[in-house]
Write a protein that binds this DNA or RNA. Structure first.
Length: 266
DNA sequence: ATGTCGGCAGGATGCCGA
C-alpha cells in the first residue's frame, strides 16, 4: 500500500493537479492539509472520478484537512480527544480548528494533521501550537497504550524543523518559529512516545526539504525546510519498504509550496 | 527587493495568513 501526505495550499486551486498525481504516483491513501475551504466547497468529484473516496474537515477558508483513499475509509474522526481550541477574537468562543482528521484505511489508522504555525515566538498562537502538540502526544500515546500493535500513521504538516539540518540556513530562521527548542522538544516527545519518522532513512540529509517558500527563488536554490512528516507506530514502521519526497511536484505550473511525502508499505 | 501565493470583502485593491 502506498500512503502519502501533502499540504496542498488550497485544494480548489490545485485539485486537478492533486488528482492527476494520485493516479500517476499510484497512491492508495493521501492525507491533505491546508485545503482552505469548507466541507461544502470541497471539490469531491475529481477524486471520485479518479477512483477515490474522500473525507474532509473544513469550517471556513482557513486550515482544512482531508483523506482520500481507494482502499476504504472507515471510522472517520473529526479532531482528536483533548484537541485544544482557538479563537482570534475575544467575542468569539474558542473552538477546535480543522486541523486533525482520522480514518482507518485498509487496516491503517491514518491521521491527517495540520499543526498550528505558531506565527511568532511567544505569541498566543505559539503557546497554542505547543499545547496542541502536547495534547496530540498524550492522545497518541493513549492509542498505543490501548493497542501496542496498532498500525498508526501520524502524517502531515508539523510546522517544525526538528534539527538544524532541516533548514537551509539556521541564521535565516534565528528567532523564528519552527526551530525553537520548545517546538523541537514537543516533536521529540512524540518520537519518544514510540512514533518514528519512517521517511528519513530513505531520504537522508543534509539539504533534504519538503517545503520551500514561494518568494526569493527559494525552490530553485533549494532553500527549504523539512517540516512534513510521516510518523509511524512500531507496527506500521516495520512495514515501510520505501519512502520519498516528491520534489517534482513542487515544480511546474501553480505548485503548492510543499512537496508530497510518500511511503510504501509491505 | 517584505521578494509570492491563496482567499476574502467588495466590486479595486488591500489585508490576513503562511
Amino acid at each position: 500500500m502506498r500512503l502519502a501526505t501533502w499540504n496542498v495550499n488550497s485544494i480548489r486551486a490545485r485539485v486537478d493537479r492533486v488528482a492527476d498525481w494520485l493516479e500517476r504516483a499510484d497512491v492508495d491513501v493521501l492525507a491533505m492539509q491546508e485545503t482552505k475551504c469548507s466541507d461544502e466547497q470541497f471539490p469531491t468529484m475529481p477524486f471520485l472520478a479518479a477512483g477515490y473516496e474522500v473525507v474532509h474537515c473544513g469550517f471556513n477558508q482557513w486550515n482544512g484537512v482531508a483523506i482520500a483513499s481507494r482502499v476504504g475509509i472507515d471510522d472517520v474522526a473529526v479532531g482528536f480527544d483533548n484537541q485544544p481550541t482557538w479563537s482570534d477574537k475575544p467575542e468569539v468562543e474558542a473552538a477546535a480548528e480543522a486541523r486533525a482528521l482520522g480514518a482507518t484505511c485498509n487496516g491503517v489508522r491514518v491521521w491527517s494533521l495540520y499543526v498550528p504555525n505558531g506565527r511568532t515566538v511567544g505569541s498566543p498562537h505559539y503557546v497554542y501550537k505547543l499545547q496542541w502538540l502536547a495534547a496530540l502526544r498524550e492522545t497518541a500515546q493513549n492509542w498505543l497504550t490501548e493497542d501496542p500493535s496498532a498500525q498508526l500513521a501520524l502524517v502531515g504538516d508539523w510546522n517544525i524543523a526538528p534539527t538544524d539540518e532541516d533548514v537551509w540556513s539556521v541564521q535565516a530562521y534565528e528567532g523564528s518559529t519552527h526551530v525553537t527548542e520548545p517546538e523541537r522538544a514537543a516533536f521529540n516527545a512524540i518520537l519518544a512516545a514510540q512514533f518514528t519518522d519512517v521517511v528519513r532513512p530513505f531520504t537522508p540529509g543534509p539539504a533534504v526539504y519538503t517545503y520551500w517558500d514561494y518568494t526569493q527563488l527559494r525552490f530553485s536554490k533549494n532553500r527549504g525546510m523539512r517540516i512534513d512528516f510521516i510518523l509511524g507506530s512500531p507496527a506500521l514502521a516495520h512495514r515501510v519498504t520505501h519512502a520519498e519526497i516528491v520534489r517534482e511536484e513542487r515544480k511546474g505550473k501553480a505548485p503548492s509550496d510543499h512537496a508530497p511525502v510518500l511511503v510504501e508499505l509491505s
